[in-house]
Design a binder for these strands. Structure first.
Lengths: 118, 118
DNA sequence: TTGACTGGTAGGGAAACGCCTACCTATTGT
DNA sequence: ACAATAGGTAGGCGTTTCCCTACCAGTCAA
């Protein structure tokens, strides 16, 4: 394991861990659908005290999924989708599996881990 | 929230939670690259006791990401990628964000949908 | 049938998570 | 200067996660 590899693995871990919580996924959805917003506007959508949401925002920030920009006494959070592109890259090698399984060819692939084009 | 919606949300939660752990992601990779395998063959790749891996397999099973098939005293685990397709569906609405940001158009998007009250 | 082998379950413990209240700093308006 | 507003931090507390050892059940071979 190289140093760069370990760093990337840690980043991957932070992104997947950030996405593991429904509140945080909902924050991402709100930022995607409504654009950049201050903390209070986000907090209005949750049955949760503001400090708890602040901690969720911290997790998202450290995963690189949101960025904050100060504007007066407000902090405007905006979506940073780049780490999600890496999640899609992570998914890509699995794609042929779900496509084949949806076509009912899973059994074939289970027996032939090689490419089973007939 | 409908009953079906709640069920889907719970399923989504289980999948994201299952992916939040590096060991479980590695199990998926092994099943993808090497095909179906018994538990011991998987366990050989981890610095971890077998019961711990069994618990990881249980989490993956309950998320629908692996299936087991008994063969004598062995249990052959195989990848079930369908839930990953749902993760890709979840990612899809974010795609334009990372594409736009990669093209340097993030600033434009940051200003346009801005309904943040000052 | 006995013994070895595969793998799941039970239970415990340390650490992380996710929530809370209380408190702090920084900024803005009067 | 003072009060109000925005939002982060500290610390506590119950729950969950993730590992362990010990144990149990099913299967195969001698």
């Amino acid at each position: 394991m190289t140093a760069a590899g370990a760093r990337e693995a840690a980043a991957e871990d932070r992104v997947f861990a950030a996405l593991a919580n429904a509140t945080r996924r909902e924050v991402l959805r709100l930022l995607r659908e409504r654009g950049p917003q201050p903390v209070q506007a986000l907090a209005d959508h949750f049955d949760m005290r503001r400090p708890s949401l602040s901690e969720h925002l911290k997790v998202l920030r450290e995963a690189g999924l949101v960025a904050e920009q100060r504007s007066g006494r407000q902090r405007i959070y905006r979506l940073r989708a780049a780490p999600l592109a890496e999640v899609q890259d992570w998914l890509h090698p699995y794609e042929r599996f779900w496509r084949d399984q949806l076509k009912g060819l899973g059994d074939l692939l289970d027996r032939l881990p090689d490419d089973g084009q007939s």
